[in-house]
Each structure stands twice: as C-alpha cells, then as structure tokens.
C-alpha cells in the first residue's frame, strides 16, 4: 500500500468533520502534494443542490494546502502540526462544481514560502479532467 495513504488525515491537519474537506494524502514529492477527497452530503457542510459549493471547493483547496504543510512539518521537519489560516485566494477559476460522490484529486505545489506564509498553486481534477485552479496563501499560527 502507498505509504502516504496509511497516514490518518487527522495527523496532517487539525480540521474535523463536518468541516474537513480532505480524505487522504496520496503523494508528496518535491514540494507538491496530491490529495484525494470525495464530497459526501452526510459528512460535509458547504454542499448545495447535491454538489460541493464554490465556497466548499475553496475550503477543499485550502485544506489541501494545510495537508501539504502538515506533512512537511510532521514527517520532514518532525514538528507538530499547526493551526493554519487562509491568508489570500487569487485567480479562483472553476469550470463546474463537483457532485457528491465524485472523487477529487487535487495537487498543491509550493511556489514560495516566506517565514510562516506559504504560496501554493492548486489544481483540482476529477477523472483526470482539470476543473478548478487557484493560487492561495496560508499562514501557520505562530505559538
């Protein structure tokens, strides 16, 4: 089994259901993480008309960024997982919204990090089709 998939996602970010919008880290290579998520009307808020809402899609992307930095902190730097805040979203574009039960595969690439702020580019795919992109900055809460 893929070693990343066996990491419980709650070890990678502090968000809990019904406000958790990621299921599994599938891969981490060279600063880029790939995350899988299937929206479920019984488990997730921010669903509308049988689909993940646009705002839910934003939160999914932000949480993918959190999973990436959570993995790096926990498994590369051996630090605890920290609470993070979204700092900024830019150029959010999507061609359609994911339906409940569809599986999202989202890649987040680290473009730059300055102190506790990371800038990532996110690409969301369903069945290989690119459906959404955005550039986002997250800040980790300083202790």
């Amino acid at each position: 089994m893929n070693p990343f998939c066996s990491i419980p996602v709650c070890d990678l970010l502090p968000q809990q259901p019904p406000f958790r919008f990621v299921d599994v880290l599938e891969d981490y290579t060279d600063g880029a993480a790939r995350i899988r998520f299937t929206p479920d009307e019984g488990k997730n808020l921010l669903m509308e008309d049988g689909c993940l809402s646009a705002v839910g899609l934003m939160e999914h992307m932000a949480q993918c960024s959190a999973v990436r930095s959570g993995y790096v902190n926990r498994f590369v730097l051996n630090l605890p997982v920290k609470i993070g805040y979204i700092g900024q979203f830019r150029k959010l574009r999507f061609t359609r919204l994911p339906k409940a039960g569809e599986t999202l595969e989202t890649t987040v690439f680290l473009r730059e990090q300055v102190n506790n702020i990371s800038l990532v580019d996110a690409e969301v795919r369903i069945g290989g089709e690119l459906i959404a992109t955005a550039s986002l900055k997250s800040a980790l809460k300083e202790d």
Partner: peptide, 12 residues
C-alpha cells in the same frame, strides 16, 4: 470542528 479548543471563523 474549526478548530477544537481554538475556534476561528473559517475564511471561506
């Protein structure tokens, strides 16, 4: 849920 022991209004 966001977060346990440290409530913050999610940006989205």
């Amino acid at each position: 849920a966001h977060f346990p022991a440290y409530p913050v209004t999610p940006g989205v």
